[in-house]
Design a protein around this nucleic acid. Structure first.
Lengths: 234, 234, 234, 234
DNA sequence: TATGAATGAGCTTTCATTCAT
DNA sequence: TATGAATGAAAGCTCATTCAT
């Protein structure tokens, strides 16, 4: 094993790295992580107590510190896990018949996923600005989704299906925000909406905003990227 | 649950109603309110201390309680004030030549306003779910903007300028979120954008999503698809 | 009053500066300082609890932090006070008839003073190396006594009373240590001694070591500073 | 009072007597003892953690308790070892030509030895008063050195080399302290000295204090003043 | 009204020690 | 013997709120 026996190493970070944990340790850590998720979702970050997390996990108060060195650290771990889950869930495995139908399916899936995790996502919203660390995590998570959408928009533009005058990244960011925020207002702030109507409206807005509802023949003289309105108004 | 997170607590009347204050009292109260705004913007809600607010206001610690009965109460007062300011600011003084230009001006104005108040708006985001009281305040504030936009959409639809198949309220909510969230991601989360390009993209997305870029002859057989207002009002 | 109302100043050190305290505050601070002295003397530093100090002072636990920000800080204050007392106590106001008699009086006084404060001085010993801060305080306090003794030695040398071959500073340091340490071994470690005999021995050792028991005529050819033994051995 | 500061606790037998250990066990115990020495020297007693000692020794945290029943117990073991080493080191192999030269050699050796072990000796100073047990150990260790010096003084007195008016024990204690404390102030408190000058000054002070620099004819009428040994033994 | 000292519940964190494997 | 996870008593410290002046 040959650990670091130098006196300088005497002061080390308390929580043992995850890779060095025994099976029992991994089980306890998982229990704490699950408990933290439940507690954060139920009380928000500020009102959550380490004592609550330990109690829900069924371990002694001190055991918490065997695995995490602070409330911030579990929070980080919980949120990483949540975002990993959100990123890995894939709504459809078969290619949708049309962009519009794919968008509709994605919207429905996103809204349902949001509703399921609403309490925890509300907490994520609360803490997004608490530390630079979390802000960075948030930015990177967003970028994952934005990039995915931006690539789709690019593909549609290349295929002559979407308005080529839109910047894919700005557009993906804006339209993504629209759906994400709609879900937040609905499930967290408590505005009331009807699912079918919400999906329908959001989809129609995307389709029309992207110009997916009519063709965009690749005209040889490149049209100005922005803000070129339709020719009829000029 | 801690004693003062219940919605009733925040609704409690101030130690002394504002109307009964002397001129000196009003001045002190205003100083505290300003100080709270600065401190909340600088530290967020959880990290702000009554002691900080008092010190910044230049009054003794105990004086705070002459005007507010709790931290929640100042928060409420600060946020009310902010939302009142945001609602009263009017961007354009002359009627815009076209909906698209009006939208563009509104977007630019909103983004600039957001940038100015970013820190406080970030705090508002943090606390939105802290109490039912704040959640309600948030809902009502949103409704003010959404209704204003919904009325505009309705007008454009009635004038044959906008897609009549869109529900004005759902649409106003979704498009409003898009801009609000874009500003948040930019000024709070720290994504980087260019103002002109942002305004252009957001405007183009609104215009195309609403179908403001082509005509919508009032064909009676298409109107009923979505629960828009009854045709008799136009 | 015009305090610092800038937001940057919001985060300030907790304990209000002593000069700004009211009479009541000064009283409480003094009570805490006295209590700390008692508790440190009784339990040593490591075993003393803030709770003990507060209880002995008759104030609430939190009140401690109104005046000191940590156990280290009171310790520092207590030790400063002790050293100030030790430095200001003057044994004799009349010039002693001879150096030897002055030394004897000083020794007796030092031993009695040590016995009185033995418990607290034992604590001082314990903590001397706890922080650079305390180590510095210790060094400076020592220097005060060493310098005083060194000046006396210098005077005696100039008057032809003491061995001119001794470096006043090294000598003062060494002889001072001898007495200080004798007291420590006696009153703290628990070795048993008789006061008269102790004073007599220490004084005789000083007198002979310094050569105060015979004359040192200022020979025109400066004798080698060190280690020149008596001429009889060469 | 806390459970383990009583003298009995430190006297408790180790979980398993050293004699019954296997070769492997002896090796582990030695590793822990060495580690404790390093950690105590580096962090002092209060700031040293069993976890640190175990880590530096390269064994699991729990293994510590196979060999020692508490932190106090290792401390005791470490300090015993240190004092055994200090007592067994013999500076000179050949008889010194004169008392003065012997004293000088002893002083130089002592100062160097102190410098080498300064950190651990500083810790010893810190803990000297922590328990009656340690205070006793300290007293006995001191007595060993004091007795050795006292015997030398006695011999010099009997040979007519040293002032017969000095009590050998008091004198040995006082002069021993002088050197020991000088080293402490130098290597622990951080006062700055030059080795040659220090050795010279300390030696000169001893020599003159003891009167080794001139003869002391055994005049029978002066001898009885202090309780030196009875003249019949010489 | 204003002041600033006092309060103490509440939470976090540490770490010596135990114990199942 | 060795391991490393679990325990929980003990402190430390914070800060919203109260209160005497």
């Amino acid at each position: 094993m040959s650990p670091d026996t130098s006196p300088e190493a005497a002061r080390e970070v308390s929580p043992r790295p995850v890779e060095t944990l025994t099976a029992r340790g991994l089980r306890t850590r998982a229990a704490l992580l699950d408990a933290a998720r439940v507690v954060f979702a139920g009380s928000g970050f500020a009102e959550s107590r380490i004592a609550d997390i330990s109690r829900v996990a069924g371990v002694a108060h001190g055991t918490f510190y065997t695995y995490f060195s602070s409330k911030e650290e579990v929070l980080h771990a919980v949120m990483s896990e949540l975002q990993r889950e959100m990123a890995s869930e894939r709504p459809a495995h078969t290619a949708p018949p049309s962009p519009a139908q794919g968008i509709e399916a994605a919207h429905r899936h996103y809204l349902r996923m949001y509703r399921t995790n609403a309490a925890l996502l509300a907490t994520l919203e609360q803490v997004a600005t608490l530390s630079e660390d979390l802000r960075t995590m948030r930015r990177e998570h967003r970028r994952f989704f934005v990039d995915r959408t931006a690539r789709a928009i690019q593909r549609w533009q290349d295929a002559g299906l979407a308005d080529p005058g839109l910047d894919p990244t700005y557009t993906a960011s804006a339209l993504g925000n629209m759906v994400d925020r709609f879900a937040y207002v609905w499930f967290v702030i408590g505005e009331e909406f009807d699912e079918d109507k919400a999906v329908e409206t959001l989809t129609r807005l995307w389709v029309q905003a992207l110009g997916l509802d009519h063709e965009h023949p690749p005209s040889p003289h490149r049209r100005p990227r922005l803000p070129g309105r339709s020719t009829s108004t000029s």
